[in-house]
Amino acid sequence: MFAFIVRRIIQAIVVMMIVGLIGFAVKNNIGDPVRDMVGERVSVAEREALRDKLGLNDPFVTQYFRFLKNALKGDLGISYFHNKPTIEVIAAKAPATLELVFATALIILLVSLPVGVYSAIFPKSWFSRITMGLSTIGVSVPVFLTAIVFIYIFGVELHWLPSYGRGETVDIYGWESGFFTIDGLLHLILPSIALSSIMLPLFIRLIRSEMMEVLETEYIKFAWAKGLHRKRIYMVHAFKNTLLPVVTVFGVEIGILFAFTILTETVFQWQGMGFMFLEAVERSDTALLVAYLVVVGAIFVVVNTVVDIIYGFINPMVRIAGTK
């Protein structure tokens, strides 16, 4: 077991090094940050002087090792646009994204579970047919389109909900939260529904098919034969066994949800990490860009490593595979 954990951690470190290297390689092709910093009138010589000062003219290897050295000390550089350490910028934007993802995950769970289970039990009812039809559409409509349509219907035409931003936030020990004000919650509705629209159909379908499969198994048939109550069969025997694969997929999909926040946040001017990332690309704020890649990469690597290790405890087959 110990050897397995050590191996996983070494792998994680290698992955992080590669993420840093890729981020660093990309950064030199995204554009010149100095261009965004100065006016059009500024001479070539002045720009070069500024590049020298920022160390952008050093050879790639020198820059990369300087970056690694600082990164080990927890310093990922200073954002050219925000004029603050990149870690601080990302930390300030993280709550917005985490809250959005949390609210979205909540919506996905609360809707997909009952709907999925219902349509598995009554696959021929009109409700099930309609949801299945809608979920096909839901999967195929891109999230930015959903978002803009929502803004126009509920913001512009009906005036029910605010169209952009996070609204009023409350500072709880440095965490800017929108959960505790009515305004903040109202602002959360459209973005979280828009974001959930990509995953929700997928989960309804997943739960439905898993549940249907379980309902076909021998032990369920046996339970029927035993004369157990309908509710007990569905909720305890069938549902419980449906959940296992769903939870696994949910863990993976949450990560993908983070990727989709980039689009959703941009359309709703939601001040989170995704929005910050896209702006950094546009402004060629390369320092922030690399820091973002490293931080997000680190989150993924840590989560995956932990999950793998837990799996190792639960399922010994994982540990043995690959050792030979």
Binding site: I148, V156, Y164, V267, F268, Q269
Partner: peptide, 18 residues
């Protein structure tokens, strides 16, 4: 002053009265 980068969102914010 709020920056709204996305064109469609900026227009929507005005039309919705925000």
């Amino acid at each position: 002053l709020t920056p709204i980068k996305e064109n469609a969102t900026r227009v929507a914010a005005l039309l919705s009265g925000d």
